[in-house]
């Protein structure tokens, strides 16, 4: 009986936790704050440009520093 109660509580807690995640996530049109310059990992443009050059030449990766473009991979 006691194990059953514990199980019930565990399941209930599990369901509660799942419900809590249902509304998470930033939508593309909610990136307002993320797109601010203050939110960039590196605010120094020259430093960022040098880093970008390294990433591009070593990893063939570019962009993705800020969210101003919208994150659809099309800008």
């Amino acid at each position: 009986m006691r194990i059953r109660t514990v199980n019930c509580i565990a399941i209930l807690l599990g369901v509660l936790v799942i419900g809590g995640c249902s509304t998470l996530g930033v939508k593309p049109w909610q990136r307002e704050i993320l797109a601010r310059p203050q939110m960039a990992l590196n605010a120094e443009p020259i430093d960022a440009a040098i880093d970008d050059h390294i990433y591009f030449s070593k990893e063939a990766a570019s962009g993705g520093r800020s969210f101003g473009g919208g994150g659809c991979g099309c800008n």
Binding site: K27, P28, W29, G69, G70, G71, C72, G73, C74, N75
Partner: peptide
């Protein structure tokens, strides 16, 4: 944007004279 299912900014939808969405375009260059 939730109703239209926007996946990136900007996104545009082209709707014909009958009210049907004919195309969706993400981004703008």
């Amino acid at each position: 944007p939730g109703q239209f299912g926007v996946r990136g900014m900007p996104t545009s939808f082209l709707i014909d004279r009958d009210g049907r969405v004919q195309s969706r375009h993400a981004g703008f260059r």
